[in-house]
Design a protein around this nucleic acid. Structure first.
Length: 760
DNA sequence: GGAGCTTCAATTTTT
DNA sequence: TTGAAGCTCC
């Protein structure tokens, strides 16, 4: 025992672990599960364990670590590199399920009848294809909405139900008939066929087809079973059946499987993730070792206890007690505002104030919301205060039209069968090949049972009724693409990218557009080209990486993973989903209103509601020092104002951890009687004098807010009305402000007494 | 074939 | 409010 201890202690990195973490990190052989509460050092354990294995002599090539995001993978790799060195760390196979298996699929694509440079369709491509199919089948696209159809197909694939099995599954078909979509199985079939014909896989295929590969090719399965002697899975609660089965198969020989997760943080059930994977672990591996990490190192006592009090409301959960030794800290502040815009201003002001009061930089703040659409009010308010911010998610860089257009060229030259890429570029930039012509081409390609590319590349073999003008233009297009294709062998990705941008006319097109958007688009393209350059030179041993390497990377990259421009500290704005795994000293959880959070879609079933609650739990546990909740009584929806009620989740927090504040002028400074139910005191009952159309911006602390007022701002004064700020005089407590009031003329006011409100 | 206009629907989360 | 889709006119 002493010897073993001595051995462990020779590894510096293990000294940072507490005894539970240590036990988990140094457990070597056999299946194990780590149930890790929020902020309990889960990543630390995972990385320590990998480092430990390597230090102990396990070949890094034999370790497979699967994460949920690219960012998590990168972070872990860095941490491991820190301990065992860069060279060794690089040999660990580490990445998201999608990226790791996309690479493996590329290796063995021929076994599935795919070329190795198959395209990965993103959800936009998938939806676009479904739309085409629905149209071709003459179905009503109001009933067969692409998004709905796709999610149906997606969940089938995640449960390993092929198009044929789907058709034969009476239960599923009955469901579709009930929802007035009896033809769905046909769409699925056709969708599969079209993807295959286009040499394309969608996101779910990457996992689905990996399962097929491992199922139908024992040699491949065996190879990877022996190759990956140690398998680690992060965020196990978010894995779906398809992922579960891949892991189970790969781990079947050595059973050195380590899964780490927290059922309380499962927030992707809507996408097919099943907590059952955690609950069933003991059935698959009866002799598994269970480790529980319950000590939270991240948050204050108040935050941990508040989060615990919320999650207790869920019936379906694994019992555990998350606790902390950290300070009690501040109570969780709850803020009510009248409108969503006011919510934005209040939160922004609060961030601004706290930043100066606590002397921490803006990167210590995060605003978390349920839906991306909520970001606008905060963006506007932050911009007004000159507070730097960064929005994560939303429309990512790679989803911008101009970027997708260029990437479509790359895709098409790597894989000319890629139908979706073809549709994007055949007439972009405009080259006079219109919709009528394109439709004709697609119909013909269906008739001849060939891809559109095959059809137009060998026009003389497939008679098509197209006028000679269009025909010439198409032939020119084919020649151009083929010219690029010829360069694939001889040129690096970055050279080709530049050539395409220039000679296709895209660069010129955007360059001529001098509008701010046009300039931004042009800059985006430049950034993309720079990115490709960097990418193509980042290969190992100085080897140039190819265009299709780049495409694989890009297809699986999301904005959350992209961390550039870190020089200026910025407030982070993101959805709660995107915030998972992150932590911030100050967290603002906003829009805590019924029908928004919990979402309207989720309030009808217990399972959905519990997922929303877990989502709230995730949000709360992102906070280290301070957590602030806010909700608004009126919010613009579809451009119209609508009233809203405070979220039930606020009530679910034990009120001893809460501090309530509201910004309504009538109730300013009023402290809440906590002995009364919260809804009774801040909810709709006190809401009688509220008019949804009120566009006022009441502020309860003018002394503080006045600091935000700048020259040029339009302000509202109680007595003098609306006015424009002309200048400031003096400083400190005697600071004066000169304002021109409409109707009342110029006035000089002592700032500390003036009750001024900013007006939009 | 394409530009510009009107109409209409849509907002949950993402690899 | 925004964006896509459909329609009209050149």
């Amino acid at each position: 025992m002493d010897l073993i201890n001595l051995y462990f202690w020779s590894m510096e990195f293990l000294k940072e672990l507490n005894s539970n973490q240590m036990d988990a990190a140094t457990h070597v052989e056999g299946p194990m599960m780590v149930i890790a509460g929020a902020g309990s050092g889960k990543t630390k354990v995972l990385t320590s364990r990998i480092a430990f294995l390597i230090e102990k002599g396990v070949d890094a090539f034999q370790i497979l670590a699967l994460t949920f995001t690219n960012k998590a993978a990168r972070e872990m790799k860095n941490r491991i590199a820190h301990v065992v060195g860069d060279a060794e760390a690089r040999n660990v196979t580490m990445g998201t399920f999608h990226s790791v298996f996309a690479r493996i699929l590329r290796h063995h694509a021929d076994k599935l009848g795919y070329p190795s440079n198959f395209t990965i369709y993103d959800s936009q491509d998938s939806k676009s294809l479904i739309k085409t199919i629905v149209k071709e089948m003459g179905l009503d696209d109001k009933i067969y909405k692409p998004g709905v159809v796709l999610s149906r197909i997606s969940s089938a694939k995640n449960n390993l139900i092929s198009a044929e099995q789907y058709e034969q599954n009476t239960e599923i078909v009955a469901e579709d008939r009930m929802s007035a979509k009896p033809q769905l199985y046909l769409i699925y079939k056709q969708y599969e066929m079209r993807c295959f014909k286009a040499s394309a896989m969608d996101f779910d295929d990457l996992l689905f087809k990996t399962n097929l590969l491992l199922r139908d090719h024992p040699d491949v399965l065996q190879y990877y079973q022996h190759r990956f002697r140690f398998i680690l899975v992060d965020e196990y609660q978010d894995t779906n059946y398809s992922q579960y089965l891949i892991v189970k198969k790969l781990a079947a020989v050595h059973e050195n499987l380590c899964v780490v997760g927290d059922d309380a943080q499962s927030i992707y059930a809507f996408r097919g993730a099943s907590i059952e994977n955690i609950l069933n672990f003991k059935n698959d591996y009866p002799d598994f070792r269970l480790f529980k990490l319950e000590q939270n190192y991240r948050s204050t006592k108040n935050i941990v206890d508040a989060a615990n009090s919320v999650i207790e409301n869920n019936k379906n959960q694994i019992k555990k007690t998350v606790w902390t030794q950290n300070d009690t800290g501040n109570k969780i502040k709850v803020m009510r505002t009248l409108t969503d815009n006011e919510e934005g201003r209040w939160v922004s002001n609060s961030i601004h104030d706290n930043k100066h009061a606590e002397e921490i930089d803006y990167s210590g703040f995060a605003i978390l919301y349920r839906t991306n659409a909520q970001s606008r009010a905060f963006e506007e308010a932050l911009r007004k205060l000159n507070v730097p911010y960064k929005i994560y998610g939303g429309l990512s860089f790679y989803q911008r039209k101009e970027i997708k257009d260029i990437i479509a060229y790359f895709r098409l030259i790597c894989n000319p069968n890629d139908e979706e890429a073809f549709k994007r570029v055949i007439n972009f930039p405009k080259r006079g090949i219109g919709d009528t012509t394109i439709d004709t081409l697609f119909v013909a390609s269906q008739n001849y049972q060939v891809s559109v590319w095959e059809l137009i590349e060998h026009f003389n073999q497939y008679p098509v009724n197209i006028n000679s003008g269009a025909r010439t233009k198409i032939e020119q297009f084919v020649m151009m693409i083929n010219r690029y294709r010829g360069q694939l062998e001889t040129h690096g990705a970055s050279d080709i990218a530049e050539e395409i941008t220039r000679s296709s006319g895209i660069s010129n097109l955007l360059y001529q557009d001098k509008s701010p958007e046009g300039v931004a688009r042009h800059e985006n393209i430049q950034e993309l080209l720079a990115g490709i350059k960097e990418f193509s030179m980042s290969g190992e041993d100085g080897e140039l990486r190819t265009m299709s390497d780049f495409l694989l990377d890009v297809a699986l990259l999301t904005d959350v993973d992209k961390d550039k421009d870190q020089d200026t500290p910025k407030v982070s704005l993101m959805t709660i989903h995107a915030s998972k795994g992150l932590e911030f000293p100050h967290v603002y959880i906003v829009g805590l209103e019924e029908n928004l959070f919990p979402s309207q879609m989720a309030i009808h079933s217990r399972a959905d509601l519990e997922e929303e609650r877990r989502l709230f739990y995730v949000a709360l546990t992102r906070a280290e020092k301070r957590c602030t909740l806010s909700y608004s009584m009126c919010r613009y929806l579809y451009g119209r104002p609508a009233t809203s009620e405070p979220s039930r989740f606020i009530q679910e927090i034990d009120p001893t951890f809460l501090e309530l504040e509201m910004s309504t002028p009538t109730e300013k400074g009023r402290s809440l009687n906590l002995s009364r139910p919260i809804i009774g005191s801040i909810g709709l009952s006190s809401h009688s004098n509220f008019k949804p159309t009120d566009k006022v911006k009441p502020l309860n602390n003018h002394l503080r807010k006045n600091e935000e007022i700048k020259v040029g701002h339009v302000v509202m004064h109680e007595k003098f009305g609306k006015g424009k700020v002309l200048s400031f005089e003096g400083g400190g407590s005697d600071k004066k402000v000169k304002i021109y009031f409409t109707g009342n003329g110029e006035k000089t006011l002592l700032l500390k007494f003036a009750k001024l409100d900013l007006v939009d």
